[in-house]
Each structure stands twice: as C-alpha cells, then as structure tokens.
Design a protein around this nucleic acid. Sequence first.
DNA 1: TAGATAATTAAGCGAATGTCTAAATTAATT
DNA 2: AATTAATTTAGACATTCGCTTAATTATCTA
Lengths: 97, 97
Amino acid sequence: MDAKFKAINDPTRREILQFLVNGPQNAGKIASQFDMSKPSISHHLDLLKQANLIQAVKKGQFIEYKLDKTGFETIHAWFQSFSKYFEFPKPKIRIEI
Amino acid sequence: MDAKFKAINDPTRREILQFLVNGPQNAGKIASQFDMSKPSISHHLDLLKQANLIQAVKKGQFIEYKLDKTGFETIHAWFQSFSKYFEFPKPKIRIEI
DNA sequence: TAGATAATTAAGCGAATGTCTAAATTAATT
DNA sequence: AATTAATTTAGACATTCGCTTAATTATCTA
C-alpha cells in the first residue's frame, strides 16, 4: 500500500503513467519524453512496477511497459472507503447491468 | 496537485483521514489516537489542510478538523483520467437518478 | 490579571528521495 | 567473436521528510 502512494507521489512518475495511457511503450521511448537521464527514468519505472501500477514485458532487446490494473484498483478501493462521508460526482442518470 | 499526492503519501496522514470519517474532531483528540508528539500531528494536519483534504474550524480554544470534499474530488478526477484505459470494478446492477 | 489548557511555530537531526555519472548486464548485429 | 544498442545497477551527493524538544500564541477560568 505504501509503495503505491509513494509511486504516485512523484510528478515524473505520474507523467509516465499518463504517457502510457496512449498504449505500451519501451523504456527508451518513455525516457525520450523526459529531460532526464535514462537511469533516473529506469528507477522511476522500477518503483511504478513495485507498486503494480505498470507491468514490464521483455520483447527481445527492448522492455515494454504498460499500465497494470491491479495497482490502480487498490488505490481506487482506498478512495471508496471515504464515499460514506461524501459522495463523489456522479452522472445524473445511470443504468448498469 | 503535488500537495495532494504528497499529503496522502504518509501513512499517519492517511490514518488521520480515516479517523475523520467518523466525524469532525479537534486536534487534541486526533493527536491522542497516535503514539506521536502533538507538534508532529499538528504538522501532518497542516499538510492535509494545504492539500484541501481537511478543513480547520476554530471553536474557541479548540480547532476542529473535518474532511474536505474538494481535495478528494481533485484526486478522484485524476484517477478518472485512466478509466479510458481500463474500467474499475463496478456493481453488478445499479440504477441512479 | 494570573495560571492553566490547546495548539502551533521554531530549530535541529537522522533517514529517505531524486538526480547524476560511470560501470555492468543482456540481447541483437555484423 | 567482437561490436553496438537497450537497459539496469552501483555509488555519490544535495534536497526533502518526519520526528523530537523547546518556545510561542491564543483562549478559558478562577
């Protein structure tokens, strides 16, 4: 749990997550998006992986990273524990089966 | 934005938030829940307030703290930005008006 | 007004964090 | 087999963080 909150605390790591919404990317492509050394990005990716917010899949010489649902669900559940106190904005009308 | 993620990164601050789900409490009552000095708790409360996750209301000699919806909504909205990638668990059946 | 209570602010210290460069590892290419 | 490319690991350094004790501000009550 600590690892997840720690992971999303850093602005660079949050940008990495948002970048991966567009789809999986290898470490090099991710690093090229930031004005920061590759080892630093590699370290950020490691922390995100430890938090189960991303998954790493080795593809030959490259390592592809993609968002991991499990970590997000855990944090989302934590937020739900506050819904008894105040409701979050919801659609006017919604029907789900 | 940074202030909010920073605020929920610390386990003590998360415990304070969960404690306040039971209702508003003054600083002394909050501090008595933790095996930690009052100044430390005071500092934690300050960071939570800066993040708009709690509100402080002065009541005479006491200061009452309660959860603040605005900060939670902001973080919640950040999470929603990932919903295009994968859906979070939802109830089997739900009808809202 | 003096004294007690509630809470914060100030100052200081060790631990954790984020960054870098340099070196090491792993895989593809020639 | 040697070379190049992708990525991580290691080591070092400055900054930030969380905690403590001591001092300060504000309020209540006798």
